[in-house]
């Protein structure tokens, strides 16, 4: 598992640079994200790890004045190619944000939201998908009796799992997680981490986190970014126990200035 080169790749990032308003945010990144593994991006605030994540499903398109060089390839296709359907790309590459963001609708409607966008309207099918998704997100038992009450009545941790269920409902190939547990209490965090590990068998997960222990606990590979550059990228065990570079070691041991 620690053997990098034998993994099938999901994303291939080649020479990616990104600048907002002329200010560089990512500098010439090249990395492969392996399929059905958990890859963590760590690094100090403003290092570009969230930006990199948002490039992977093209959410950065929403920002104006962005210039980009380089390619991002998903399953053999450049995601920035002109013929790519952005909505379809985002369905394939789901994303979970730092603060839970359920829509102001019922739990059921939240999970069915993305499915309905695909044009699926039949109640039997929707019921099945909703149950399956909530079970996959380990939330079914807690909410099965109140599927039609507002999603806002759930606790923060439950809301975050609901958001994951909502994303899983559209059958994505990749799940991007942008500090998914940073707004949650320790027990909820634990549940999210368990969930991440259990989902690995089905899809590729990319995790951005500030929490080094969390990266160490759940990820298979870890990339360390600083000032928009990829400093070190290795199997998680190697990176944490035996970093090659002094800068990486300083960061993971907390000697970062």
């Amino acid at each position: 598992m620690t053997d990098f080169t034998s993994e099938a790749s999901c994303f291939e990032v080649e020479g990616l640079s990104l600048a907002y308003d002329g200010k560089p945010a990512l500098r010439d990144l090249t990395l492969r994200i392996p399929r059905q593994r958990v890859t963590a991006f760590i690094g100090p605030s403003g290092c570009g790890k969230s930006t990199l994540l948002r490039v992977l499903n093209r959410l950065h398109d929403l920002n104006e004045d962005v210039s980009r060089q380089g390619r991002v390839v998903l399953a053999g296709q450049d995601i920035h190619a002109p013929d790519v359907d952005v909505a379809e790309l985002r369905r394939r590459v789901g994303m979970v944000f730092q603060t839970p963001n359920p829509f102001p609708m019922s739990i059921y409607d939240n999970v069915a939201f993305g499915v309905r966008l695909q044009g699926i309207k039949r109640k039997r099918v929707l019921d099945e998908i909703v149950e399956w998704s909530l079970e996959s997100a380990a939330l079914w038992d807690e909410v099965k009796d109140r599927l039609h009450s507002s999603a806002w009545t759930l606790s923060g941790g439950q809301q975050q799992r609901l958001v994951i269920a909502r994303t899983l409902a559209v059958q994505p190939e990749v799940l991007l997680l942008d500090e998914p547990a940073s707004a949650l209490d320790p027990i909820s965090t634990l549940k999210i981490e368990e969930l991440i590990r259990s989902l690995k068998s089905r899809l590729t997960l990319v995790l951005v986190t500030h929490n080094m222990q969390q990266a160490a606990r759940v990820s298979d590979y870890t990339a360390f970014l600083q000032d928009g550059e990829l400093i070190e990228y290795a199997a998680t065990d190697n990176l944490f126990t035996n970093p090659r570079l002094r800068r990486t070691e300083n960061y993971i041991t907390g000697r970062m200035s």
Binding site: N101, F113, Q118
Partner: peptide, 17 residues
Amino acid sequence: PVQQREGALALGATRYE
């Protein structure tokens, strides 16, 4: 909140949706 908008877009919604 911008999170609501991004949440919808991240599920494969178009801007109109």
